[in-house]
C-alpha cells in the first residue's frame, strides 16, 4: 500500500508517496534521494543510519516512516550551513576522523546533537553520546579528538583549522 505523507527533511517540506511498510531510512534514501544516511546493519545496532528527529539522534533504519510526520528530520545533508561545512565536518577532515567514511554521517549527527546541548563536553560525555555509533576503521581516538576540536571552534567562534593549528 502506498501512503501519501508529508515529511520535513533539512527544513524542506515535501509531500511524498511511500510504501506504508518503509522505514524512515528507506524513504530518505529510495524515495527522497538523501543517500547520506547509511544502511549498515539495518537493525538498530550500528548507528550508521542516525538522523536527528526534532534535534535528537534516532535510528532511521528501525523507525517507521510515519513516526517522522510533523517532526523535523535532519540528515547529514542538512548539517552544513550557507557559509560552508559544519565545524564538525571540518574537524573530521582535519584530524582524519573519517577513514572509509561509512559510519561518518551517523557519527556527525550524534555529535552535532551533543554539541547543540553541550558546547563543552568532557571526553566521557563525548564517548557516551557516540556510544551507539560503531566505527571499524579509526579506533575512535581521532573521532573524539575531532569532536573536541569542533566544540572549541564553536565555543571560540573561529574555524576548526585555527583551533587545530593553535
Amino acid at each position: 500500500m502506498i501512503e501519501a505523507l508529508r515529511l520535513t527533511v533539512n527544513g524542506d517540506t515535501q509531500e511524498i508517496g511511500v510504501p506504508s511498510h518503509y522505514t524512515l531510512l528507506e524513504a530518505l534514501r529510495y524515495v527522497l534521494g538523501y543517500t547520506g544516511s547509511k544502511q549498515g546493519c539495518d537493525k538498530g545496532d550500528c548507528g550508521a543510519c542516525t538522523v536527528l528527529l526534532d534535534g535528537q539522534p534516532a535510528l532511521s533504519c528501525i523507525l517507521p516512516v510515519q513516526e517522522a510526520i510533523d517532526r523535523e528530520v535532519t540528515t547529514v545533508e542538512g548539517l552544513a550551513g550557507p557559509d560552508g561545512p559544519h565545524p564538525l565536518q571540518d574537524a573530521f577532515d582535519l584530524t582524519g576522523a573519517a577513514q572509509c567514511g561509512f559510519c561518518t554521517p551517523g557519527i556527525l549527527m550524534s555529535a552535532a546533537s551533543l554539541l547543540q546541548r553541550n558546547q563543552s563536553p568532557s571526553n566521557h560525555e563525548i564517548r557516551e553520546a557516540l556510544s551507539g555509533n560503531l566505527c571499524r576503521c579509526t579506533g575512535y581516538t581521532k573521532i573524539f579528538d575531532a569532536v573536541e576540536i569542533a566544540a572549541r571552534a564553536l565555543r571560540e567562534n573561529r574555524p576548526a583549522a585555527e583551533v587545530v593549528r593553535a
Binding site: G47, A58, S110
Partner: peptide, 9 residues
C-alpha cells in the same frame, strides 16, 4: 539500556 538513539525512541 542499549545506546542513546535506542533510548531516545
Amino acid at each position: 539500556i542499549a545506546h542513546p538513539m535506542i533510548r531516545n525512541i
